[in-house]
C-alpha cells in the first residue's frame, strides 16, 4: 500500500447524502476479475448526465471528494474504493461513512476523513464559488485547508498510522502466527468444518 502523508488536489463538491456503493460502482462492473481499471465505472449512471459535477471542466481532474453524510452506504464491494482511486481520488471527506466502506478505504490507501457537516458545507461553498480550488489534506496533522478556510478531520488512530506507514495488514497479522496456532489448538471440537459431509 502506498503511504499517505499529505495531498493537494482539486476539490469536488458532491451535494448528496447516503451515496450508496451501487452509485459509486454499479453491479455490472463487479463481474471483472481485475483490481484496477475501474475509472470508467465510477458514478457510471450519474456521469451520463452532462450536469453531473465530474462532467464540469474544473472538477474533472478532481482528487478530493467532498460528499454528503453516510457516504458509501450499502454493499461491501471494495470496487467502490478502487473506482474512486482509479479515477484519481486520494481523499473523501464526509460527515460520516458507512462502516464497511470506511474499512475498505483504509485497507486500500484511500483517505476517508470525517469532518463536521458545517465544515463540509463551508467546503462546498468554496468549491462552488471558485471551481478548481485546490484542497490541502494533511494526515500528519489531520487538517484540511482550502483557500483561507481550515478545519480538522477525524480518522481512527490505527488506520491513520497504517496509512502513514503504508503498512500491509496481512503482513502485520502474520507476525502472530504462533498465537493463531495456539488459539486453533484450543478451539471447541463441536465447531463445524466445511469439509463435505454426506447427510
Amino acid at each position: 500500500m502506498q503511504a499517505f502523508e499529505t495531498h493537494r488536489g482539486i476539490g469536488v463538491p458532491l451535494r448528496r447524502s447516503n451515496v450508496d456503493t451501487d452509485q459509486i460502482v454499479a453491479a455490472q462492473f463487479l463481474k471483472r476479475i481485475t483490481r484496477t481499471g475501474y475509472d470508467d465505472a465510477l458514478f457510471y449512471a450519474w456521469r451520463q448526465d452532462a450536469g453531473f459535477v465530474l462532467n464540469q471542466e474544473p472538477f474533472r481532474p478532481g482528487t478530493v471528494l467532498v460528499a454528503g453524510p453516510n457516504f458509501g452506504t450499502g454493499s461491501s464491494r471494495e470496487h467502490a474504493v478502487w473506482a474512486l482511486m482509479d479515477y484519481g481520488f486520494r481523499v473523501v471527506l464526509s460527515a460520516s461513512f458507512a462502516d464497511i466502506f470506511r474499512g475498505n478505504a483504509g485497507k486500500s490507501g484511500l483517505l476517508a476523513g470525517q469532518c463536521g457537516q458545517a465544515d463540509i458545507e463551508h467546503l462546498w461553498a468554496i468549491l462552488e464559488d471558485r471551481p478548481g480550488t485546490e484542497v490541502d489534506v494533511d494526515l500528519v496533522h489531520r487538517t484540511v485547508v482550502a483557500d483561507t478556510f481550515r478545519c480538522g478531520f477525524d480518522i481512527d488512530e490505527y488506520t491513520r498510522w497504517r496509512l502513514l506507514e503504508g503498512l500491509d495488514d496481512i503482513g502485520l497479522s502474520l507476525r502472530h502466527t504462533d498465537a493463531i496456532a495456539a488459539y486453533e489448538s484450543a478451539r471447541d471440537t463441536w465447531l463445524p468444518t466445511t469439509a463435505p459431509v454426506n447427510r
Binding site: 471494495e78 464497511i100 475498505n104 502485520l172 497479522s173 502466527t177
Partner: peptide
Amino acid sequence: FGIGTSEVEHVLATQTLPMA
C-alpha cells in the same frame, strides 16, 4: 458481518481479522 476484498484476502491468509 460483511467484509471487503482486502479483508477476504486477510482471512484467507490468516483465518483472522483485526477489528475495531
